[in-house]
Design a protein around this nucleic acid. Structure first.
Length: 531
RNA sequence: GGUGCUAUCGUCUAGGGGUCUAGGACAACGGCCUCUCACGCCGUAAACCCGGGUUCGAAUCCCGGUAGCACUACCA
């Protein structure tokens, strides 16, 4: 088997093998375990996955935990579970056993690897060691407006460029903390080819000498780790959020400094997910404020004690979330909106990804869930429905014949967006009304209603054929005979059975309730409803 | 402030010089259906940021402006 993780070996191979290998699509999703996975991150993962599948490539999961101070326990497990729930399969890396040939896939476990490359850059003179403390940097920023650590200022700072080698060695030997900075050569136009945006050019002078490595925790920063890992893991396409676009030129410079420009991955920067109202990036606060989840799964943050709601717990189907997210920033060539994962893999294309940010349209998300709900049978929905019923009513639901319950679900699912909304619509099938909706009563329960309902009671009591057809014939005949108003009678009847003027066709209700219960509710209604 | 990205109905978007009196979907509104509430169906309203070019012709190409967003950390 080919070892993708030994680029030097790859370089030695005959060209024809290299061509074959270079065609292998390998993408990665590389989240940071700093909390629940944001919905925008989920979309990034989804696009990566779809792209990988479409090209018969590999989808890797790498954990970017190079900031030891921001680590949140449980975040990694959360990410794995969320991706699994959504049907985003990982081929290599974290969450896969065995993880794969390019491991470890957790950056905090790759220290030795980074050491090697940090030294390589230092030896080549592409990076240097800096001792400036955070306080000193802070002071400099105050002193000089728009201070930037770069070619114009680095010679005024405490670093290996301004000190003798002896002093540098002495400071390190004394245990002084330092960072390694990338030495950006000024005044050079850096071109980044982006699959979504085309050519982006920026001048290297606006880039600062980015910190690549910090001795304090013996870890590289994102920029360094990202380039080294993508290279070693033979990543062919980097598909990530637009917030990375400004640092993409820096990444190109890093590939160049390492001498890896020939095998540099292709870049595709995805538009951001924006707040539904106002402006700005979608945040957890927006979800809390507007009442919708911003995370796939519920998350209990052990670090700050917060609980974040999730799509799964809110009653969303994973296929609805996938479909919804896929269309936020991407559109097929026609008017088609319902896409299964397989269809997305079939039709997806990076050049149909929008360039502009997309405001998060939560209402559309609900609609998608509604569509997927209609596609499922009462049978399929049964377990989820029972689980969504409040504990005190579960016995009543479980007592009922499953076939009847699934029939009720089939009957009522079309009027809700989520399974958890179902109970509110169907509870009267299981529990007799104890109170009667005031508005319905006011509108539909008239002076003559008690007498009519009493007569209806007697009529039904004497009817044995309880089929919908027969009841309809008998009751409608009786109404016609007495010249009652159909609406008046039927609505009053409905109120006694449901407790309000709502619900499915009345014979569907009597059918489920049966004669005995129907009569019981009718009688209770006559006694308790007062206009 | 600097740099970059972006710009079509309220929202997601189709559109890539003439087929655009700009299409679809969500939401809104109206109607139909009907014993009710929904669902569904039908319909209405609703947009090319502004200004210059290029061209016989621009939503589409170019330039400028404006606006929004992102980045500008020893965070990713």
């Amino acid at each position: 088997m080919t070892n993708f993780c030994k680029p030097d070996v790859v370089a030695e191979m005959p060209q024809k093998f290299r061509d074959i290998m270079e065609r292998k699509v390998r993408v990665r999703f590389a989240p940071s375990p700093t909390g629940a996975l944001h919905i925008g991150g989920v979309r990034t993962a989804l696009y990566n996955y779809i792209f990988a599948r479409q090209h018969g490539g590999d989808m890797l999961l790498r954990i970017e935990d190079t900031d030891s101070t921001r680590f949140v326990p449980g975040a990694e497990e959360y990410i794995i579970e969320a991706l699994r729930w959504l049907g985003i399969e990982i081929d290599e890396g974290i969450g896969v056993t065995p993880e794969g040939p390019c491991g470890p896939y957790r950056q905090s476990e790759r220290r030795e690897i980074y050491h090697q490359y940090v030294h390589q850059l230092l030896d080549k003179g592409k990076a240097y060691i800096a001792f400036d403390t955070p306080e000193e940097l802070e002071a400099k920023r105050k002193e000089i407006p728009n201070f930037q650590y770069d070619a114009s200022t680095r010679m005024q700072m405490h670093n290996s460029l301004t000190m003798s080698q002896e002093e540098v060695s002495a400071r390190i030997a004394a245990g002084e903390q330092y960072v390694v900075r990338f030495k950006v050569e000024p005044n050079e136009d850096v071109h980044v080819h982006d699959l979504i945006r085309g050519e982006v050019v920026i001048n290297s002078s606006i880039l600062d000498d980015k910190v690549l490595y910090k001795s304090a925790d013996d870890l590289p920063t994102y920029h360094m780790a990202n380039i080294v890992d993508d290279h070693l893991m033979q990543i062919s396409h980097v598909i990530r959020g637009e917030e990375w676009l400004p640092s993409a030129p820096l990444h190109v410079l890093l590939y160049r400094a390492f001498g890896w420009e020939d095998t540099m991955p292709e870049f595709a920067h995805l538009p951001l997910l924006l707040k539904p109202d106002g402006n700005g990036k979608l945040s957890k606060r927006d979800g809390d404020r507007l009442g919708f989840p911003v995370f796939p799964l519920e998350f209990h943050n052990q670090k700050d004690g917060t609980v974040s709601s999730g799509y799964r717990e809110s009653g969303y189907f994973p296929e609805a979330v996938v479909n919804f997210l896929a269309l936020l920033g991407w559109h097929g060539s026609g008017d088609k909106e319902m896409y299964t994962m397989d269809e997305l893999i079939q039709d997806f294309s990076l050049d149909r990804v929008s360039k502009a940010g997309a405001k998060f349209d939560y209402e559309k998300g609900k609609w998608f869930n509604h569509q997927y709900l209609q596609l499922k049978s009462g049978e399929e929905l049964y377990d989820a429905f029972v689980a969504s019923v409040p504990a005190e009513y579960q016995p009543a639901v479980k007592k009922m014949d499953k076939a009847v319950v699934t029939h009720i679900i089939d009957l009522m699912k079309e009027r809700v967006n989520f399974v958890p909304e179902l109970w509110e619509q169907v509870n009267f099938f299981f529990v007799a009304p104890t109170e009667y909706d005031e508005k319905s009563v006011k509108k539909r329960w008239k002076e003559e209603s008690p007498a009519q309902m009493q007569a209806l009671y007697e009529l039904l009591e004497g009817t044995d054929d309880w089929s919908a057809e027969n009841l309809d014939q008998v009751v409608m005949g009786w109404i016609a005979e007495h010249e009652y108003g159909v609406g008046l009678v039927m609505n009053a009847f409905r109120i006694t059975l449901v407790g309000a003027a709502r619900g499915p066709h009345i014979w569907e209700i009597t059918n489920v309730l049966g004669k005995e219960e129907t009569l019981r509710r009718l009688k209770a209604g006559i006694e308790h409803i007062h206009a």
